[in-house]
Amino acid sequence: MRFGPVLRKMRKGAGMSQESMANELHMSISNISRLETDKYELKAVDLIRWCKVTNNPDVLMALYAGAEVVNQLQPITQLITGTILFLGGV
């Protein structure tokens, strides 16, 4: 799976620049760029921190469930939220 497009979409959706993301994650701007272009291997800990910084825990849930998250983050959020509500909450 290519994570770069997902990471970029989450960052932009949070209204963050690559520079602000780099500051939050204590990384260089070039590493942020490499992650978003799949030129750098994404570590699980970095994915978790990225999701926290951009307020996207739903992406982790979708990845865990095996859902495709590359093209549309919002519909997946609605699907997961709807599923959780259907199951009576968490």
Rank of each mutant, 00 (worst) to 15 (best):
P75N: 06
G66V: 06
L73P: 01
Q74R: 10
Q18D: 03
P5A: 01
L85Q: 12
M16H: 02
E24S: 13
W50N: 15
L60E: 05
L25P: 04
V45G: 03
I48H: 09
S30H: 06
G15N: 03
G82M: 01
A44G: 10
N71E: 08
M27A: 08
H26I: 08
E41P: 06
A67G: 00
N23P: 11
T37V: 06
V70S: 15
Q72F: 00
G89V: 09
R8M: 05
C51I: 14
E19S: 12
G82I: 01
T54N: 03
W50C: 11
T37P: 15
R2F: 09
I76Q: 08
K12T: 15
V6K: 11
Y64H: 05
N23H: 09
F86L: 05
L47G: 07
C51H: 01
W50Y: 10
W50H: 03
N71G: 01
G13K: 00
M21H: 09
Q72H: 03
G4Q: 10
I84C: 08
V6T: 14
N31E: 10
Q74F: 00
L87Y: 11
A44T: 05
M21L: 05
K52N: 14
T37M: 10
G4T: 04
I48E: 14
D38M: 07
Y40D: 07
A67Y: 12
S33P: 00
K12Y: 03
L42Y: 11
Q18N: 07
M10T: 04
I80C: 03
L7F: 01
D58G: 10
G82R: 06
T37L: 10
A44R: 13
K43Q: 13
E19T: 03
R2P: 15
R8L: 02
Q78G: 02
H26E: 08
G89L: 08
I76C: 06
N71D: 04
V90W: 10
F3Q: 11
E36Q: 09
N55Q: 04
A67V: 02
P5R: 04
G82Q: 13
R2V: 14
T83M: 11
